[in-house]
């Protein structure tokens, strides 16, 4: 079985249950979005997958092999996280050199080319990087590693709009040329929604949804209009959340609505991923669908 399989993983830090019986699969050669609010457990999940921390329960399999203590399995993954794991006094070019030692498929030429495009001087030392350029450097390492599984934990932290634009384009270029599995973990959903194929939504350590974006949004609609009419129409339907402004009401539904069944006076529109995510993970929101 190809892919990263997380089976029934639980992890607690003291009293906090960071992951609760999490099972999720990242299949080969797809771009995934791992979406969750701050503190939902995204980083913890990544850290368990890459064996940086140990789960209390459950196991992780990479292409069918257990990942723990397994060099060949672990080196199919390259992960970038917010934190820095390189010695502060190392030069970026040295970091590249050593990454290549551990990831033999690492493309140094490509890394240099990307550094040029982003305007990053590789003679700098790790400690001399700003937050944005720290992210950029790690992005470059990840994309150049040519590992089968690329995990990006909050890749766009600190990146200005131009660099974010470049990141998505370069990611898509790379993915088109060398298909691999990409998991983008983020709470910035709007930008990322165009790029991701499959969605995994995590809330407070639990996986709420795992599906393709298309499937998820095929049954996600927004009804707006006069409050009374809206209520009448949406009664008994799967409601994710509601918003009111005066006599005007908006209801978010997670079921399919046939356009022709809509009474005149009510507006129907599709939910985008960000709206869907917000409604699904709102604590004050409606029921979970």
């Amino acid at each position: 079985m190809k892919g990263i399989e997380v089976k029934n993983v639980s992890k607690a830090f003291g009293k906090v249950n960071a992951l609760r019986d999490v099972s999720v699969t990242f299949e080969k050669e797809k771009i995934y979005g791992l979406l969750g609010r701050n503190g939902a457990g995204k980083s913890t999940l990544f850290n368990v997958i890459t064996n940086r921390i140990f789960p209390d329960e459950g196991m992780v399999f990479i292409d069918g092999e257990t990942s723990a203590g397994n060099d060949s399995a672990l080196q199919k993954i390259f992960m970038m996280s917010e934190k820095n794991y390189y010695p502060e006094t190392m030069r970026l070019s040295e970091v590249i050199r050593w990454t290549r030692e551990f990831y033999p498929d690492f493309d140094t030429e490509y890394a240099r080319e990307l550094a040029g495009r982003f305007g990053l001087d590789l003679r700098k030392k790790v400690k001399g990087l700003s937050t944005g350029y720290g992210s950029i450097f790690k992005i470059i390492l990840t994309l150049s590693s040519n590992a089968d599984y690329l995990l990006f934990d909050e890749p766009i932290l600190g990146l200005d709009a131009n660099h974010r634009d470049m990141f998505y384009k370069i990611l898509l270029e790379k993915y088109s040329q060398n298909p691999c599995t990409v998991v983008l973990s983020t709470h910035l959903i709007e930008e990322v929604s165009g790029v991701i194929e499959d969605v995994v939504i995590i809330r407070q350590g639990e996986i709420l949804k795992q599906a393709s974006q298309e499937e998820l949004l095929a049954n996600a609609f927004v009804i707006t209009g006069n409050a009374a009419e809206v209520d009448r129409f949406t009664e008994g339907k799967k409601i994710l959340g509601t918003e009111s402004l005066g006599g005007f009401k908006t209801v978010y539904l997670s079921e399919f609505v046939e356009k022709s069944s809509l009474p005149s006076g009510l507006e129907l529109s599709k939910m985008d991923l960000q709206k869907y995510f917000i409604q699904l993970t709102n604590h004050e929101g409606g029921e979970m669908a």
């Binding site: 203590g69 060099d71 390259f78 794991y85 010695p87 050593w98 551990f102 990831y103």
Partner: peptide, 16 residues
Amino acid sequence: RDSFRLMIQNGVSRKT
């Protein structure tokens, strides 16, 4: 410390 962090980042098992 430093080499542990770098090697974990590079997917090296603790055994290695």
